[in-house]
């Protein structure tokens, strides 16, 4: 009994340092989310006015092609962003893990700087490039017919979102690739495989869990991307996050906005559950440390 109590006491003591951050999480995250969840089941009477409980908000979203398309567009954007960051991020992470030191420094700065810049600033940067008479269309002008502005297009939003989320992908992949035993590459080549063959037979399969982890991380983050779609997509390219903003701030339809938010969070949680499951099955991947 005594021993059991002592051990229980020790366990309590170990939890103690976590108390502040857990409290903060409770106040900042759990309580507001609970409020949003409750609100999502209220009836929208008029702007800013809520009535009794109902499931109408969810049926509306899931039956109205307008809202469904919004969600679909969000998921599509997130999926495309995940694929694009994987394709762009893999070579960068590979060079970070295997390249000479000067290249590591250069790449690390290039990849990390966007993380340290406000997303508003970054998006304005893209806006300058994407604008109808911006750099891109000026350069592309002589090639195609007329200025090809990327503003308010899905491609524009995709490129800008991928730029924002690329660091997460690169860091996740870097963690996996850096821990890959470089002797395996030598062993493979010694056994007769070419460089390319070695990459596809050894390096890629062994870093696949990093690719999947990075894509899930980017996917989950991209579904809730707001600033970039808002600034670059504007009103012509609406995604779920910008629609939630529109509904809650401009139209004061809080229940509908909440229901959409709940759906988005559910998708994100589901993605993270799959991710956790995968990284546990593969004995953990480099991303676990980053995601925490």
């Amino acid at each position: 009994m005594t021993a059991g109590r002592t051990r229980g006491g020790a366990r309590r003591a170990a939890w103690l340092p976590l108390a502040p951050v857990l409290t903060l999480y409770a106040i900042q995250f759990v309580v507001p989310m609970a409020l949003v969840a409750v609100t999502s089941f209220r009836r929208h009477e008029s702007a800013g006015q809520m009535g009794g409980f109902t499931t109408d908000n969810f049926t509306k979203i899931l039956q109205d092609p307008y809202y469904l398309g919004m969600l679909g567009r969000s998921l599509l954007l997130a999926g495309e962003t995940a694929v694009l960051t994987a394709v762009l991020g893999y070579p960068i992470a590979y060079a970070l893990a295997r390249g000479p030191r000067w290249l590591k420094v250069v790449l690390l700065v290039v990849v990390m700087v966007p993380l340290m810049t406000s997303s508003v600033v970054r998006s304005f940067g893209w806006m300058v490039l994407f604008a109808r008479d911006g750099l891109f269309s000026t350069l592309a002008g002589p090639l195609g017919d007329g200025p090809a502005g990327l503003m308010y297009t899905s491609t524009g939003v995709l490129v800008a979102t991928a730029h924002v989320l690329l660091p997460f992908m690169v860091l996740t992949l870097y963690g996996v690739l850096d821990r890959l035993n470089p002797t395996l590459v030598h062993a493979s080549m010694n056994l007769g495989a070419s460089r390319t063959g070695t990459f596809f037979r050894i390096t890629l399969p062994l870093s696949m869990n990093g690719v999947v982890a990075g894509m899930l991380l980017v996917f989950a983050t991209a579904t809730s991307a707001f600033v970039t779609p808002q600034l670059i997509g504007g009103t012509r390219y609406r995604v779920a996050a910008t629609e939630i903003y529109e509904q809650s701030i401009n139209l004061l339809n809080w229940p509908l906005a909440s229901a959409m938010a709940v759906l988005l969070v559910a998708i994100a949680l589901l993605t993270m559950a799959v991710y956790t499951r995968l990284s546990r099955d593969t004995g953990g991947s480099g991303a676990t440390g980053i995601i925490g």
């Binding site: 035993n181 002797t183 395996l184 030598h186 062993a187 493979s188 080549m189 010694n190 056994l191 007769g192 495989a193 070419s194 050894i202 399969p205 062994l206």
Partner: peptide, 20 residues
């Protein structure tokens, strides 16, 4: 001759077996 055409076998200190 590149590594993969030397035809010289090697056994590594940590074996370097392909874990997957």
């Amino acid at each position: 001759a590149p590594i993969n055409q030397r035809g010289i076998g090697i056994v590594f200190q940590n074996y370097a077996l392909f874990p997957h």
